[in-house]
């Protein structure tokens, strides 16, 4: 199962840029060029692994229990969990950095397109996983830093998936991933179809201060 980058959701990219409606004079063409460039430059990679879930909510043989009520609620009906990590690679990062030197506006568009692109890679990966793991059902994906799942458990993802060696992503001392356009996530695997919670702002770690939510906009990402 190869990671696939199949497209960039323009609405999503615009929301990342703080777009709230209004004229897009000249921006759409530029956005189109940036989308093409991101699709061409990205080298998506992914790694994933299945674990049985023990009754206490920890992953078998992993020395890891995802902490927090949100994630345990997500896994309530699951008997297995899938850990995954995906990245667009270092090239996109270099492209955005380089573009900043001459045209900051364009760099922002590229950055937003890349953010939407890594989500696309994750969406595709989850769809492919769902097909492969049927008849079991996947929950939504849940990342460190969402809700009350602490960012510190990034280290467990890195250890269990061997992320640096497998897909070339490293973890900074502060717990941040490099290249930046990278995602780690956890999903449950259950016998019954699982409720979709995407777009449910209540489980989002930024519920309190999200400026989108205050304006009645949903980013669509938890």
């Amino acid at each position: 199962m190869e990671p696939r980058l199949t497209g960039i959701n323009r609405r999503e990219a615009l929301i990342y840029l703080g777009y709230r409606g209004g004229a897009l004079e000249g921006v759409e063409e530029e956005l189109e060029r940036c989308e093409e460039l991101v699709l061409k430059t990205a080298r998506p990679r992914a790694v994933w692994r299945r674990f049985a879930l023990l009754p206490d909510g920890s992953l078998e043989g992993a020395d890891f229990r995802p902490e927090g009520e949100d994630v345990q609620a997500l896994l309530a009906e699951s008997r297995e969990a899938v850990l995954l990590a995906a990245t667009l690679g270092a090239e996109i990062e270099a492209l955005v950095r380089r573009t900043q030197v001459r045209d900051m506006g364009r760099a922002m568009l590229l950055d937003a397109c890349a953010s939407a692109a890594i989500e696309n890679v994750c969406d595709n990966l989850c769809a492919d996983l769902a097909a492969e793991l049927a008849p079991l059902h996947l929950t939504d994906r849940f990342s460190p830093g969402y809700g009350d799942l602490p960012l510190s458990c990034q280290a467990d993802f890195f250890r269990l998936l061997d992320i640096p060696r497998r897909i070339g992503v490293s973890l900074s001392p502060g717990g941040l991933m490099l290249p930046q356009k990278s995602v780690t996530a956890l999903l449950g695997l259950a016998d019954r179809p699982q409720p979709r919670r995407s777009g449910d702002c209540a489980v989002c770690g930024r519920f309190e201060d999200c400026s989108l939510r205050k304006e009645g906009i949903r980013c669509g990402r938890n």
């Binding site: 840029l17 777009y19 004079e25 900051m104 506006g105 568009l109």
Partner: peptide, 14 residues
Amino acid sequence: RQEIFLPQLMSAAS
């Protein structure tokens, strides 16, 4: 006034 948004502001700045 939200007539333009950030990337446009930045292109102007550049």
